[in-house]
Structure formats: C-alpha cells, structure tokens
C-alpha cells in the first residue's frame, strides 16, 4: 500500500471510530438522533450528551492516543529501537508524577495551566535524562532499564503521595491520574493542552528527516549532515511537550506508542519519517476504540482506559520484544 492511500484510509477509520464513540454509551443513540443533536435539531438532552460528554471524551481519547502514537514513533526513531515508548521509558510516569505533585500541593487551584505545565516538566525531565543516557550508551537494553528505573521511581513517589493523601478525595484524584482515563473531559481540558502539543508537534516534524537518517546509525547520520545535538534536542523537547500534554488530559496511558508504530511501520517501508503521521492517527484510533470498550464492558465500577490499554498493550510489548530477540539474536 502506498503512503498516500494509508493516511486518508486511517483518517476515515479515525472519523468512523469517533462517530461510533458518540453513538454508544449507557444509552445508545441512533445515527438519526446523533445527526439531529449535531445540528441542534434534537432534544436538549441529546445535545448535552453529545457536545458535553461523548464528543469531548472521544476527541480527548483520539488526541491522547495520537500524541502517544506520535511520541512512540519519534522516540523509536531517535533511539533506533522498536520498544522505545513514553510509557516504557518512564516518560508518562514522570509526567503523571508532575501532575500529581501539582494536584497534591494545590498548585492546580492557583492556575489552570499548572497541571499541564507540571506534567510537561516531568516528561521533559525524563526525556532529557534518557537522551543523556542514549548519548553515553549504545545499548538499547540499558535505556529500557533506565526507563524501567524511572517508571519505578516515579511510581514509588506516587505511591508515597497516595500513602500521605490527607483525605479520600485527594486519594481518588491521585488514583485516576495513575490509572489514566478520558471520562468527564471537556473541550476546555483539550484546549488547555493543545498549544503545548502543537509546539511539540512542530519540533518532532522538524526532525523527521533526521530520524530517517538515524536509521543508519549516529556516525553515518552525522556524515549525512544531520545536526545530532539539534535532532536529539528537538525530539526530546517535542516528545516531552506532547507526552506531558497528553498526560495532563488523561493521566498515564501506556503501550499505545508501541503498538501504533509497530503496526504502521511495514506499511511505510520502515522509514521513521513516514511512520510518524500514520502512527499518530492509528494511536488515536486505538485509544478511541479502547475507550468504547471501556464504556461497553459491563463492570461494577467504570474501567479505566489506562488499565484497558495496558491489558492490550503489555502482551503486545512482550510479543514485539520476543520477535525482536528472534531476528536480532
């Protein structure tokens, strides 16, 4: 399949998934009612369900999934490793630690952008540390282990905050950050994160050719004319901003950034630059579908999106790692 056909096809699938997400829920809405609500002709209840609840939620799921799919593809290109991903490398965990700290210490009450900024700072700190490590070691395993260490440390600090939570409300707030969810998100939440995402996206897009050149290794990329410090800086800044912004919307959601690029790569000739856009769209689709699943699976308490994503994604991670072990010896 050519790349030109892939992006429109994925976009059509994404649109269908978002519409489907608006149709299903505790009360199923028929396509006719959805259409009526959309143009403002239906009942007031339908309009609220659509505009205040389902559509923002579906868009939030798509945006977060797209952000994670894009960051996964960018980090994998930079680190030349299909297992690199914001979740696996501890970037998401550090971002949600940042957000949690902002909530815990009440900074969120001071300014609406406190949480996104805190989440992004956490993500940038993690990506910077990883990039520093990546310069000093060529071992992919070392990086994954550092990511594991980062996740564990961020997890431990989060557990400490849970432990010290002064009241059940703070506790439940903290838990929803750890588990990841797009329930009850409004367009305002998305708009707050959007500028950070757009700036991050620009940084990543500007380094896309460098990511392709990096397929040949860092020395060869240098020889080709890649400004390595700039490329590293841009990808780190870009993924830090985008992941942090995604976490500020939905909390930590793992493995989307692994699955989406892995599925897309064979369709675009394994070129890291051409993997970015389709992997972002597919990441969005996966998360919208997972969120539909979250709402449809009958359960006593609503399932958390991050939990469902990990239930699908973690086995996929193991599967990719085993496949990689087989081909790379």
């Amino acid at each position: 399949m050519s790349d030109r056909a892939l992006i429109p096809l994925l976009s059509a699938i994404a649109l269908t998934a978002i519409i489907a997400a608006c149709l299903v829920g505790s009360t199923t809405m028929s396509p006719g009612r959805l259409l009526a609500a959309m143009v403002g002709a239906g009942g007031a209840g339908d309009a609220i369900v659509l505009w205040e609840i389902r559509l923002p939620r579906a868009i939030a799921a798509f945006v977060v999934g797209a952000a994670l799919g894009l960051c996964g593809a960018a980090l994998q290109g930079l680190l030349r490793n299909p297992l690199a991903e914001p979740g696996v490398l501890g970037v998401s965990a550090c971002a949600s630690l940042g957000a949690t700290l902002a909530l815990f210490y009440g900074a969120a009450a001071l300014s609406p952008i406190a949480v996104p900024v805190a989440a992004i700072s956490g993500a940038l700190a993690a990506t910077a540390l990883l990039a520093f490590a990546a310069i000093h070691t060529s071992s992919v395993i070392t990086l994954i282990l550092i990511g594991f260490g980062l996740s564990s440390f961020a997890g431990a600090l989060m557990a400490l905050l849970l432990n010290l939570a002064p009241n059940p409300f703070t506790l439940s707030d903290l838990i929803s950050w750890t588990l990841g969810s797009v329930a009850n998100r409004s367009f305002d939440d998305i708009l707050l994160a959007a500028p950070f995402m757009i700036v991050g996206l620009v940084f990543i897009v500007l380094s896309r050719r460098a990511l392709s050149a990096l397929s040949l290794g860092e020395e060869a990329a240098h020889g080709l004319g890649v400004d390595l410090p700039r490329a590293r800086g841009f990808v780190i800044l870009g993924t830090g901003l985008v992941t942090g912004a995604a976490v500020s919307i939905a909390g930590a959601i793992g493995f989307i950034g692994i699955m989406a690029p892995h599925l897309v790569r064979p369709l675009v000739g394994y070129d890291p630059a051409r993997t970015l856009a389709p992997s972002a769209i597919l990441g969005g689709v996966i998360l919208v579908l997972a969120d539909i699943g979250v709402r449809l699976i009958p359960s006593p308490a609503e399932l958390r999106l991050g939990v469902v994503a990990a239930l699908i994604g973690a086995p996929a991670f193991v599967w990719i790692a085993i496949g990689r072990g087989r081909t790379h010896g």
Binding site: R80, L216, G217, E219, A220, L224, G269, D271
Partner: peptide
Amino acid sequence: YLPQSRPLAWPVRVCDVVALGRY
C-alpha cells in the same frame, strides 16, 4: 562518510538507504 560500524536500525528498502545519501 562511510563509518566502520554500519548498523541498520530498521529493515528499510535499498532505494531508501541510497536516497538518504541526498540528505
């Protein structure tokens, strides 16, 4: 520059590798 170690991170196509020469 043709470095000593020439790792290929992804199974890219031959024509795409050569095209990187025009980076």
